[in-house]
Amino acid sequence: MNNEDNSVVKRKKKNFRYIIGGDILAENFIFEQSKLLILILVLIVFFISNKYSCMKKLVEVETLREQLKDIKYENLSISAELAFRSRLSQVEKLLKSREIELSISETPAFELHKK
Score class of each variant (00 low, 15 high):
S34R: 08
E66F: 01
E27A: 06
S79V: 09
S49H: 02
I20A: 12
L37M: 07
K51D: 08
K69T: 12
N15Q: 15
L88M: 10
R85M: 09
I71D: 12
E66H: 02
V42W: 01
N50A: 14
I20D: 08
V8D: 12
F46D: 02
S89Y: 05
E99P: 00
K13I: 13
I100A: 02
L95S: 03
N3Y: 11
N28D: 15
E66V: 01
N75A: 11
Q33Y: 03
S86H: 07
K115F: 14
L102T: 00
F29D: 14
G22P: 04
R98T: 08
F110E: 13
E111A: 09
V8T: 08
R98V: 00
G21Q: 01
N2G: 10
S97A: 13
M55N: 15
I71T: 13
F47R: 02
A109C: 07
I71W: 03
R65A: 13
Y73M: 09
K69I: 03
K69C: 06
M1I: 05
C54M: 11
L58I: 08
L64P: 00
L64T: 06
G21I: 00
N50K: 09
I78R: 07
S7P: 00
F84D: 13
N6Y: 06
L58M: 11
K13F: 11
K69L: 12
E4N: 07
S103M: 05
E62L: 04
S34K: 14
L36R: 04
L41C: 08
L43G: 07
K69M: 06
S53C: 02
K10G: 06
Y18C: 08
K14E: 15
N15R: 15
G22S: 01
D23Y: 03
E74R: 05
I30Y: 12
K93C: 01
L25P: 01
S49Q: 06
L88V: 09
S79P: 01
Y73W: 03
E27Y: 01
E62V: 00
R87Q: 15
I19F: 10
A83C: 03
N50T: 13
L37V: 01
E111N: 09
V8N: 12
L82I: 13
E92L: 07
S7I: 14
S49R: 03
L43I: 09
Q67K: 14
L102D: 08
K51F: 11
M55C: 07
N28G: 06
S79E: 10
Q33N: 15
D23S: 07
F84Q: 10
L39W: 02
L76E: 12
K56F: 06
A109G: 04
N2E: 15
N3E: 15
T107R: 15
P108K: 15
I40P: 01
I19G: 03
E60F: 01
V9I: 12
V42C: 08
R65E: 15
S79A: 04
N75L: 10
E92W: 01
D70G: 05
F110L: 12
S34V: 06
C54V: 12
N6G: 00
R98D: 10
L102P: 00
I24K: 09
D70F: 02
S49C: 07
K114Q: 12
F110W: 05
E106G: 10
E60A: 11
I44H: 01
V9N: 13
I78K: 06
I19R: 11
I30E: 09
I30D: 04
P108C: 05
L41M: 07
I19V: 13
T63S: 14
L95N: 04
L95M: 05
